[in-house]
Structures are given as C-alpha cells and as structure tokens.
Design a protein around this nucleic acid. Structure first.
Length: 763
DNA sequence: TGAATCGATGTTTTT
DNA sequence: CATCGATTCA
C-alpha cells in the first residue's frame, strides 16, 4: 500500500505534495482554478490514512456540494482500500446529522423538518400577519434576508438589536420582532431553515461542553474545501471543532468567491493566518486545465479587481485558440449562431457532452433551448425550476412531511385541501384556533369530535397513512398515498393540459425514492426528506453525459468542459444590474466571470445580443465590460452576418413574414418541465420539429474597441441636441455597439449609441 | 367555498 | 411575460 501512495505522490507537483504532507497544524492552500485541488485533497486524505495511520473515522472533510463530496469519496476509495469511515460531506448535511443525533440537546422533541425558502416564506407571512405588520413595508423576503444574515453571524433574536452596529432604527425593531416570532413558529412546527442547521449545531456544541469534547476527540483531522465560500457561522463551527488538534487544512481561492450574497465572507480566507496562529500557506498556481490564452484572458479580467494576493496561473499548454466573441442582433439570432457553432463542433467529432453553455440567470436559457431542440441536439439543463419545487412533487412531499412530522403546519396547510376537500381558508383559521395555534392539534380535536365531517375523514386518512408508514417502505407509502387521495384524478381535473407532465413528475418522485432505497434498503422517511431538502441542483450535473450542458455560472463552479460558451454577455445582465452601484458586488460579478472563463479547457466563446426579449419586451444592452476586459489580442471578434443577408430569409419563412413571432403556450414545446437532472429524472427532447438550418457563414471584421481614442471618461463634449456634457463612461467591444454615457448639464445622464450620436470632444 | 378575473408586481445567483 | 394575490361573483 505504501508503494501505491508513493507512486501517487510522485505524480503530484512540488506544491501539491507539500500541501499533502503538511499534515499537522493549520494549513491554508491557495488553490487557483484548475490547479488540481481535488487531487491534492483526495491524496491528502489517503496519505493521512496510509502513511500517518490516521483512522478514517478521525477525518472530517467538508465540501460545498453533495456532488463534490460524493466525487471525493469515490476518488479516495480508489486510493485506499477502506476509506468508508471518513466523514466527507457538506456543512449542512454534517450539521443535520449532528442535530438528528442529539436532537434533544438541540431542543427538539423528536425529529425536525427542514424548511426550504418557500416554506420559510409562508411561515414568515403567517408571522407577519400575526404581528399585524404590513407586508408591503416589511415583505417576508426582506425580513428573511435580514434574519438569514444574522444567523450566518450567529446572532440570535435576543441579541439582534445590540448587534445593529449602525444604530437601532424602527426597521431593526420590527425585524427583531419578526425574528422572534419566526423562530417561535419554527419551533412550534418542529422545523428549521437552512441557516438554522449551522446556527443550531454551533450553539448545541457551544452550550454543551461534554458533547463538544466528545466530537473533538472523535475528529482529529479537518479539511474544508471552497473555504472562500464559508460564512461566519461555518467558520466558527469548524474552528471550535478543530481547536483541540488544530489540524485544519482549508482550501480556497479568493478569486472564486461568488457567494457573498449568501453570507460567505472572504475574510475567512484572508484572515486565516491571523485566525490560526502558526498557519502555513501553500499556493497552487500551476493550471492543468486550460490553454494559456484562456488563462491570460481570465487573469486580465480578474486583474480589474483589487485582489489581496495577486497570483498568476500558468500552464505548460502554450497558446491555444483565441476567444471567439460574437455579437448577435437579438437573442434568437444569438442562439442560432451558438447552435450553428455547436453543429460545427459536432461535425468535427466533438461530443455534445464536451460543451457547456453558461448563463448569468436561469431564465436566459429558454431561447437557446428552443434552438437546440429545433436542431435535435441533446442537451441538459441544470437548475432553474427545481424538480422538487414543482407543485405536484411538493404536494406529495408535503403528505410525507406531515406523516413524518404532524407539527409541520406549513405542509399540513398545503395538503389539507389538496385534493379539494372543501376545507378552505376560513376553516383552516378555525382549526388553528381550536388547536391553540397548532393546526394538527386542531385537526385532531375536530376530527375526533366529528368523525364524519370533512375534517374528520381527512384526519382518519392521515392517521391511516401514519400507521402505514411504519410498515411500508417509503416508496410503497408514497404510492399508497397517491392512490388513496386519488391524486392523478385530481391532477387531471385540475388542469388536463399539464396532466401528463405532472403525472410523469410524480412518478419520477416515486422512482427517485425507489432508487435511493436500492442504495439504502433501510431508508427512513425522515432521512429521505432530509436528503431532498439538502439536495442542490448542482448535485446532479453529469459531466459524463453526451448532452450539451446548460447552467448558470454559479452552478458551473468546480466543473470543467472542453468547450464553453458564455452567453448573454451584456451589461445589466452580466454584470447584473443590481450590482452596478456597489463596487463590492461588481467585483463579485467579475469573479463570477473569472469562474466562467476558467471552466474552459480548450475553446471559449462569448456571445452577446444587441437586443433581447426580456419580461415581454425588447431591451438593448451594452456589451459586457467583461468582454472588453479581455485584451483584443486574445479575442477573435466575429461580426454578425445579418447585414449581409443569411439570417433574414430564415426568420421570414418560419414566421410568415413577421420577424419576431414568439411561441406561447400553444407551441410544440408544450409545458415540458424546464429542469431535469440526472437519473432518474430525464425528459426526452421534442421531436416534432422538422427543419434543417444551414450554418450561417460568419464574416470576419477587424473592428476593434478603443478606436475613439480621445473620447474617454472625464472629457467634456458637445452634442447638437443635448448641449454640453461630461463623459461618465465609455463601453462596448466593437464599433456597432460602442456606447458612451454622458452627464449633460441641461438634461442629465444619457447613454448614447456612438454610431448615431453626434458628439464632439471639446476639452 | 371555489372559480374567475383583474391587476399589480417582480424578476440573480442557492446550501 | 408569467406568476401570484386580492377581489369579485356564482
């Protein structure tokens, strides 16, 4: 066994080997994109077991997604014979496990239900109603955001106000009240939200020395992946756990920090050396993924941020293809161009599975999906409307959740009248009263008093499900419920149009349970429900599939593809409009762009559209600054072929002369589920389309940005309509979208298309 | 109670 | 544009 580890070590570069072999004490590994960090981490675990004789059960490794955990587990298993004892999971799953194991210490009566965002929102709405707060001035989302932020900093409702470091205002007082009431409601429901998992696990250990000691003795070696994405609570938790042995190895890259909006704080990585005295630092800078051109582009883009430790990735793969930039007329044409390029790539022998299309938002995928369907190119969307968020799936899950935890009033509210039982809002209110604010108690009381009433038969049915739950496997129970409540009949009656799709989704849910029961024959209902709650979209990206991958930049983190298209690279989309006024958020957008670029191994495309259908109308946006930040020597700018014909006829023939005719509900795309993940949820592509699209030839053009040398930020100009003004900013990557934002003395700030604007520089 | 309709409203990223 | 919510009517 030593031999195999020795051989594995030899394949690492010096830095990686160093990171593996510094096993004792705090260690920060700064791991640039594609620098073989997963390899280093897995070898490190193997090395600990094989060479340092660490018992696998003494190792705790925390990753960001379930998928990363699973992958690492498999890779470690390939290196050492028995790695199954290693605890390798996500922060949330780990905390969930702790809370389950010692639920009494955490203050639960028995189990607990994990609420997702929409559950939390409903609960918060109820709380605000109770408090008689106006949901216009205090939207549930807004309150939840503030509360989430507090929880991520380990601030409970009782200390909320003293931690308002900007001084307490009326809003803070309201939030504090909402926070208190929300926590009380969660407790009443025996439920937790995502943030609670970490928060409660932290305080459970913090308040229970014995338990903490026990865990500190149980785990001796700690690894944290994606350290730049940890929040304060996660950092404090891992610090507490590791404080005894201090064998903490964290791996991260500031430049890939893209979750600050979720409470992640870059300070954790920046202050690591201060937080953990005597910490060693190892930098991995050799990149094994991308060509030099791609790396240069990435470095140039990220260099516009003020990075604390600037680093330069390097590779021995010199040169590479230039980054292709295409600006389309509109989003449809953009999609068509992308698809024509994909077809070319496929003709030259690429698998569709080598290709990824990355978007800033999930909603942006639609046009491209249609183009791919038309050409019958297999593709797979990750993210968007999650499978488990679909109405019909949530309905069935809600039944399971109530069976598992009847205190969960949010789920109970959902199913009490689904299918229709004639128990409406007024009746529900009464039941809440009857059960002294506990819906299930109300149902039980009413149900036993009047067993023949509507509520009575519902109650009886639920009791029978609960009894069945102890005898049936989870998937059998699920099927039993679907039959008993005549759910499919309800779906058909509710909306015949979508019936088939919904039925399929419900069946997929049963398959999913069954699938999990194959792996784990003793699957408990609440474990299944927890796995659903902690499931992430990114968990089921199948990189080995032979389908084009469509996903957000966020979901692409940690993945790599031979060919990457960065789609819809326009200002207001990417960087997102809401990040414009905050330099910090803008930097985060730039890091996101950096993540996108560094996903590509060989070929990188960036596309934009001059106008785009959004929210029902056309919008025109400037080309993203992230394109201009790639030096022109690294780019191959391709001019749109619209002006020289090529596209016009095709649009014309397809939509009887109207250039833009957008499909609506009657389109052959129907109501296909938007998102679907790896097995067992797959949907087949539509085959109704019969059309072949000739790939459009593209016309090279040497137009470059920066030709208007004297027109730059700060100069004063005169416009023949608006008069004098000062140039605020100039943007755009080619002549036809070169735009200038000018603050005019008379009419204020305007953004003009330079092509048409008659401005003269006067100073 | 429930269906239907109108209107506002909100649209990032997600463990 | 689509979804959601409140309001209205049967």
């Amino acid at each position: 066994m030593y031999n195999s580890i020795d051989a594995t070590l030899e394949k690492l570069n010096d830095r990686q080997r160093e990171a593996v072999q510094i096993t004792e004490g705090p260690l920060l590994v700064v791991a640039g994109a594609g620098s073989g960090k997963t390899r280093m981490l897995t070898v490190r675990i193997a090395y600990l077991i094989e060479c340092c004789h660490v018992d696998p059960s003494e190792i705790l490794a925390v990753t960001f997604t379930n998928k990363a955990a699973k992958e690492m587990k498999e890779r470690v298993a390939g290196l050492v014979p028995d790695a199954s004892g290693v605890t390798l999971t996500t922060f949330h799953s780990f905390c969930c496990m702790l809370l389950r194991r010692w639920s009494k210490y955490a203050g639960f009566e028995k189990g607990f239900t994990i609420y997702d965002e929409s559950d939390s929102e409903k609960l918060m709405k109820n709380c605000l109603k109770e408090l008689k707060f106006d949901t216009k001035t205090f939207p549930p989302k807004f309150c939840l955001e503030a509360i989430s932020k507090a929880k991520n900093e380990l601030i409970g409702p009782e200390s909320y106000l003293e931690n308002c470091n900007h001084g307490v205002g009326p809003t803070d007082i309201a939030i504090q009240k909402a926070y208190e009431s929300y926590q009380a409601a969660l407790f009443k429901n025996q439920a937790v939200d995502f943030d609670d998992l970490i928060f409660k696990a932290f305080y459970m250990l913090n308040n229970n020395t014995e338990l903490l000691n026990r865990l500190q003795n149980e785990y001796k070696y700690f690894l944290v992946d994606e350290y730049q994405d940890t929040n304060q609570a996660q950092y404090r938790l891992i610090r507490m756990l590791s404080s005894k042995t201090r064998n903490l190895c964290v791996v991260g890259d500031e430049d890939q920090s893209i979750y600050s909006w979720r409470g992640a704080t870059i300070r954790n990585i920046q202050e690591f050396a201060k937080d953990f005295e005597g910490a060693k630092v190892v930098k991995l800078e050799q990149n094994y993924r991308s060509t030099q051109i791609i790396l240069d582009a990435a470095s140039d883009v990220i260099s516009h941020n003020n990075s604390v430790h600037p680093k330069r990735l390097w590779t021995d793969k010199e040169g590479g293809e230039l980054i292709k930039y295409y600006r389309a007329i509109d989003d449809r044409e953009e999609s068509n161009w992308i698809v024509s390029q994909i077809k070319k790539l496929m003709d030259s022998g690429r698998s569709p599975g080598d290709i990824a299309l990355l978007f800033r938002m999930n909603s942006l995928t639609r046009t491209t999906e249609q183009a791919l369907q038309r050409e019958r190119i297999p593709y797979e969307v990750t993210g968007g409307t999650k499978f488990f968020d679909r109405r019909e799936v949530k309905d069935i899950l809600a039944y399971l959740r109530v069976i598992d935890n009847p205190s969960d009033s949010i789920s109970l509210e959902r199913i009490i009248n689904t299918p229709k039982r004639g128990i409406g809002a007024a009746a529900i209110d009464k039941l809440y009263e009857k059960g002294s604010k506990n819906l299930w108690d109300g149902v039980a009381l009413e149900g036993s008093e009047k067993s023949n009433s509507k509520v009575g038969s519902f109650f009886k049915q639920m009791i029978s499900f609960m009894e069945a739950a102890s005898e049936l496997k989870v998937h059998e129970l699920c099927k039993h419920i679907i039959d008993e409540i005549e759910y499919f009949e309800y779906l058909k009656k509710d909306d015949p149009e979508t019936y088939e799709d919904r039925k399929t989704n419900v069946e997929s849910l049963v398959s999913d349970i069954r699938y999990q029961e194959l792996d784990n024959p003793d699957l408990k209902l609440h474990d299944y429900l927890a796995s659903v709650a902690l499931h992430a979209d990114a968990d089921d990206v199948d990189e080995k599939s032979h389908k084009v991958h469509l996903m957000t930049f966020h979901n692409a983190k940690g993945l790599e593809f031979p060919v990457v298209f960065m789609v819809a690279m326009e200002e207001k989309i990417f960087p997102h409009s809401r990040s414009e006024d905050s330099p910090e958020e803008l930097e985060e957008e730039r890091r996101l762009a950096y993540v996108g670029i560094t996903r590509a191994k060989e070929l990188l495309y960036m596309t934009a559209a001059s106008k785009r259908m959004m929210f029902g109308q056309f919008n025109s946006n400037l080309t993203s600054r992230f394109i201009s930040e790639v030096p022109k020597e690294l780019r191959d700018d391709i001019k749109t072929g619209y002006a020289s014909g090529g596209m016009t006829s095709r649009y014309g023939s397809e939509s009887s002369g109207k250039i833009y005719s957008f499909s609506n509900k009657t389109s052959p795309f129907g109501t296909r589920p938007k998102s679907s993940s790896g097995s067992p949820f797959t949907f087949s592509a539509q085959t109704k389309w019969a059309s072949s699209t000739k790939p459009k030839e593209t016309i090279k053009d040497d137009t470059e940005p920066g030709t208007m040398v004297n027109l730059k930020e700060g100069v004063t100009v005169i416009h023949n309509v608006f008069g004098h003004g000062k140039v605020m900013s100039v943007s755009g990557a080619s002549l036809d979208d070169f735009k200038v934002t000018i603050n005019f003395e008379r009419v204020g700030t305007k953004t003009l298309l330079l092509q048409y604007a008659s401005v003269r520089v006067i100073k």
